[in-house]
Simulated scan of single mutants.
Amino acid sequence: MQKFITLGEGYGDIFEIEALIEYNHARIDRALFLHTENAPSTFLLIMKPVRGNFQAVYTIFKGIHVDETGKGQKYQLLNNWCTEKEIKVIEFTTRNPDDFHEREQFYQYITGVLRLNHLLPPLT
Rank of each mutant, 00 (worst) to 15 (best):
K48D: 11
A26V: 11
N79Y: 02
T83H: 06
R103A: 06
G63F: 07
A26S: 12
I110W: 05
I46Q: 03
E37W: 15
N117M: 15
K74A: 14
P40C: 06
E84K: 00
I60K: 01
Q105Y: 12
D29Q: 14
K48V: 12
L114P: 10
P49E: 12
Q55N: 08
A31Y: 05
E86G: 01
F100D: 03
F54M: 12
F54C: 13
I90E: 05
F43P: 14
E37H: 15
D29E: 13
P121K: 14
H101F: 15
A56T: 03
Y58V: 10
E102L: 15
G72E: 15
N79F: 02
L77A: 10
I90V: 12
Q105P: 05
H65D: 04
D99L: 06
V89H: 02
D98W: 10
E84V: 00
D67I: 11
F33Q: 09
L116N: 03
K62D: 05
L44W: 03
R95G: 04
E86N: 03
Y109W: 03
Q108V: 12
L120T: 01
F106E: 03
F43T: 12
E68A: 10
T93Q: 14
K74Q: 15
F33Y: 11
T111C: 04
L123T: 02
D98R: 08
P40D: 07
H35G: 04
Q73H: 03
N79W: 01
H101W: 14
Y58W: 15
F54A: 15
P49Y: 08
E37V: 11
R95E: 05
R103I: 10
L116F: 04
G70W: 13
E86D: 04
P49D: 05
P49K: 08
N24S: 09
T69V: 11
F106K: 02
E68P: 14
K88I: 04
G70N: 10
H101T: 15
H35I: 02
L114Y: 06
R103E: 10
N79D: 01
Q76T: 09
V50Y: 13
P121H: 12
P97V: 00
P122Y: 14
T93S: 11
K88N: 02
T42V: 02
